[in-house]
């Protein structure tokens, strides 16, 4: 477990790190339209995880290979890995938008 000071949580979809009140107040800055957790603490807890590993600060998402590899599109603090599975409706929402849900935890080649 990472020693974390303020219990940052990671979005299960985009792995951005925020604390729970930020998620609650503003939702996920990247994928709010699929996770729709703004305003619902329950939803936030469902769609985010405290089990994450490694932190990335993405500064230049366009240039950065790290951002590309991690599929991070915007600036911010992200987790390298996030453990957890989002609720099924989120996965459905992603696929309905033509996306593919990729676990932030899986190891791919």
């Amino acid at each position: 477990m990472a020693p974390r000071k303020n219990d940052l949580r990671a979005c299960l979809i985009c792995s951005i790190l925020q604390d729970i009140s930020e998620f609650n107040d503003d939702g996920c800055p990247n994928c709010e339209d699929v996770v729709e957790m703004k305003g619902s603490l329950e939803r936030v807890i469902e769609c985010t995880s405290v089990m994450w590993d490694g932190m990335i600060c993405v500064i230049e998402p366009q240039e950065s290979w790290v951002a590309r590899w991690q599929r991070i599109g915007s600036r911010g603090l992200y987790a390298v890995r996030v453990t957890g599975v989002p609720p099924q409706d989120v996965i459905d929402a992603i696929s309905s938008k033509g996306g593919v849900y990729r676990s932030r935890d899986a190891v791919e080649d």
């Binding site: 709010e32 699929v34 703004k38 599929r71 929402a93």
Partner: peptide
Amino acid sequence: AAKYDPDSD
């Protein structure tokens, strides 16, 4: 809401 971008995945 922030837009989810499916393409990146």
